[in-house]
Design a protein around this nucleic acid. Structure first.
Lengths: 109, 109
DNA sequence: CGTGTAAGGAATTCTGACACG
DNA sequence: CGTGTAAGGAATTCTGACACG
C-alpha cells in the first residue's frame, strides 16, 4: 500500500510513438504483436494505446525471438507461461504480506 | 554503463496528456511552470513535450507549494538549489565509480 | 506469416492572445 | 501572478484494406 508496489516499471504511460523510438520497431509491428496477443497495452478512453517500460522490454524480447525465426504463436505461449508463473509469485508474495499484517496489526482497532 | 544508471524514473517519455492525468494539473498550469523555469521537459523534434516520472513528482511538489501560496519565483530558487546539490552529488558518485574502474581494470587492455 | 503503405478521420498538442485580477 | 478559454494549425494515432509471399 505504502510504497512502490510496482512503481514506474509497470505504469502504462507512453504512446506508441515513443515505444517505437525506444524499441526501434515500427508502429505496424507493435500493433501486430498486440493483435497476436503478445503485448497488452492500456487504452485511453478515446482509444489511444498506452505502454509501460516493461512493455518496452517485452517488445524487445519479442523482436529478438522474431528475428530468430520464432513464430508469434510460439512466442505467445512462452510468454503466457512466464506471465502465469509471475502472477503466481505475486499472489504468494501478497499472501505473505497479508499474514504479516494480520500478525502485527491483529485486532489493532 | 551497464545497468540502470537512471533507469525509468528520469526517462522523458510521457506527453502532457498523461502528466495532466497523473498530476491532476491542467495543461495550462504544466506549461506555465515550464515558462517559469520550474520544470524542464524534453521536446521531440516536432516540438511535443516529453516528461519523466520524476518530472511528475516534481510537478506535484510544485502544486503543493503553489497551494501554500508560494510564488513560482521562490519555488524556482528552492528547486534550483536542490538541483544543484543533486548534481554535485552525482558528480561525486561518478568520480568514485571512475576510480573503482581505474582500480579494477587498470590497463586491462 | 509478418510487415509496408496510402487513406480518411479522430484525438492530441502547440502557440499566442484576450481575460480577470 | 496564476490560470481559464477559444482559435487555428500541425503532429499523432487509429482502423481496415490492399499488397507481397
Amino acid at each position: 500500500m505504502t510504497g512502490n508496489d510496482f512503481s514506474y516499471r509497470d505504469k502504462k504511460v507512453m504512446s506508441i510513438g515513443i515505444v517505437k523510438e525506444l524499441t526501434g520497431l515500427s508502429e505496424r509491428q507493435i500493433r501486430y504483436y498486440e493483435k497476436r496477443k503478445l503485448i497488452f497495452p492500456d487504452r485511453t478512453t478515446t482509444g489511444i494505446r498506452k505502454y509501460s517500460f516493461s512493455d518496452v522490454d517485452r517488445l524487445m524480447e519479442i523482436a529478438d525471438k522474431i528475428e530468430e525465426g520464432v513464430q508469434t504463436h510460439e512466442i505467445r505461449s512462452e510468454l503466457a507461461k512466464r506471465d502465469e508463473k509471475q502472477k503466481t509469485k505475486e499472489v504468494r508474495e501478497q499472501m505473505i504480506k497479508g499474514q504479516l499484517n494480520a500478525h502485527f496489526h491483529y485486532r489493532k482497532l
